[in-house]
Amino acid sequence: MLIVSSQLAVGQENTLTLFDIEQAPILAKNQAYLLVRVDVSGIAPSFNFAHILKKKGSYAFDSDKQKLGEKYAVSLKGVKTGFYLLAIKTGHYQITRVNAPFYNLPYWRPTNNVSWQFSISANKINFIGELNIANERGSDYISVNLFNRFATYQATMSEQLTLLLEQYALVNGKGIRDDFVEELEGN
């Protein structure tokens, strides 16, 4: 699937478009790869995220004190289930909202807690998890999650990212402390 790349400023919000992993964008200065698995349904899902103006290292979270910088929006309309890339600046980010309009239900989910943060490290492919919007037409049921599934998809990611992995290491890009990958790869 070809997804056209664009980065258009709309007011203060940048609109980003996902890249297929076979067509990885070239990284600009201070950028690294965000890798996300998308499994969504619905009419026109999308999500918003923002740069956290705070040094990485502290995982304590207070939505009132959190200062957010540059804001981004990513459309997921028509995006098939699979892995996608974005080239974005290194840093710590907060997913601020997931939009999942569904037939007659204009639903969006606020995501203001630490579980919805991710981190982008330089020279790495940062897997932020699986963005999942599950719904059932017959029952008006919607569930929105960002699953931390590095181990679940490790084999698939390694298989699909072969060329990119020659240049960049795959890391867990969750914004909260998670020692799993470090421990798995350590001695």
Partner: peptide, 12 residues
Amino acid sequence: IKKGVEGLLDTK
């Protein structure tokens, strides 16, 4: 049983 919208409406 009809499920509702998580965090918005209860299961119906």
